[in-house]
Simulated scan of single mutants.
Amino acid sequence: MPNDRGEHKDSPLRTAPSVRFTLRQKQNGEDPLEFEDEGLREVYSPFWSDLPHSDIFCCISPDILHQLHKGVFKDHFVKWCSDIVGETTIDDCFRAMSTHPELRHFKKGISSVSQWTGKEHKEMQKVYLGVLAGAVPAKVLTAARGFLDFVYYAQYQSHTIETLHRMQESLDLFHANKDAFVDLSIRDHFNIPKLHSMRHYITSIQSLGSVDGLNSEGPEQLHIDYVKKGYRASNKNDYVPQMAKWLQHQEAIDLRTVYLRWCAELPPHDETDSSDKDVTDEEDD
Rank of each mutant, 00 (worst) to 15 (best):
S204W: 04
Q206N: 14
W246I: 02
D270L: 04
W262Y: 13
M243H: 02
K245H: 08
D270N: 14
V279K: 14
D254E: 15
D10V: 12
K119E: 12
L222Y: 11
W48G: 05
D212P: 02
C263S: 05
R41E: 06
W80E: 02
T99K: 13
S210L: 04
D212C: 08
H159F: 01
P101L: 03
L173H: 01
G209R: 03
I64W: 00
R166I: 00
D238K: 14
S61K: 14
D183W: 03
N3T: 09
K277A: 13
K277W: 07
F150R: 02
K245C: 00
Y153D: 07
K122E: 15
A252H: 09
N215T: 07
R95M: 13
S216N: 15
A96T: 05
V127S: 13
L33H: 09
T99C: 09
R199C: 11
E282D: 07
R232F: 05
H159I: 01
L33A: 13
W48M: 04
H76L: 08
V131K: 05
I110Q: 01
G39N: 04
K108V: 01
S11L: 13
A16K: 15
G6D: 06
K9F: 03
R24S: 07
F106R: 00
D254R: 14
W48E: 04
A154P: 09
L214F: 14
A143P: 08
K277R: 14
E30R: 12
L164I: 04
W80K: 10
A135F: 01
E38Y: 10
A135D: 04
Q250W: 00
N191P: 00
R256E: 10
Q168G: 04
K119F: 01
H100P: 06
E34D: 11
S49Y: 12
Y156W: 02
S204I: 02
E102M: 14
K107T: 02
T15G: 15
V182I: 11
E217L: 06
A144K: 09
E283K: 10
S11I: 13
I186N: 07
Y128K: 09
K194R: 15
P241Y: 01
R5N: 11
F190K: 01
I205C: 01
S114R: 13
Q250K: 03
V127T: 14
L184S: 03
F94E: 09
Q155N: 07
Y259G: 00
S61Y: 10
S185E: 13
V43Q: 06
W80I: 07
G209N: 11
Q157P: 04
L247I: 07
D225M: 07
G71N: 04
L266A: 05
G130I: 10
S114W: 06
K139D: 12
P267M: 07
F73G: 00
L141R: 07
R41D: 01
G134D: 06
P268S: 06
S158K: 13
M124L: 14
L13F: 09
M97T: 02
G218P: 11
Q27C: 03
M1I: 13
H165M: 03
G29K: 05
Q125C: 05
N191W: 03
H175V: 09
I161R: 08
T160A: 05
M167K: 04
Q206K: 15
V182S: 03
N215M: 02
S170M: 01
H165F: 02
S185A: 14
K194S: 11
A233Q: 11
R5P: 01
M243C: 09
T22I: 12
G71W: 00
F35L: 02
R104P: 00
G230R: 03
D10F: 10
K236W: 01
K126H: 12
W48A: 06
E87C: 12
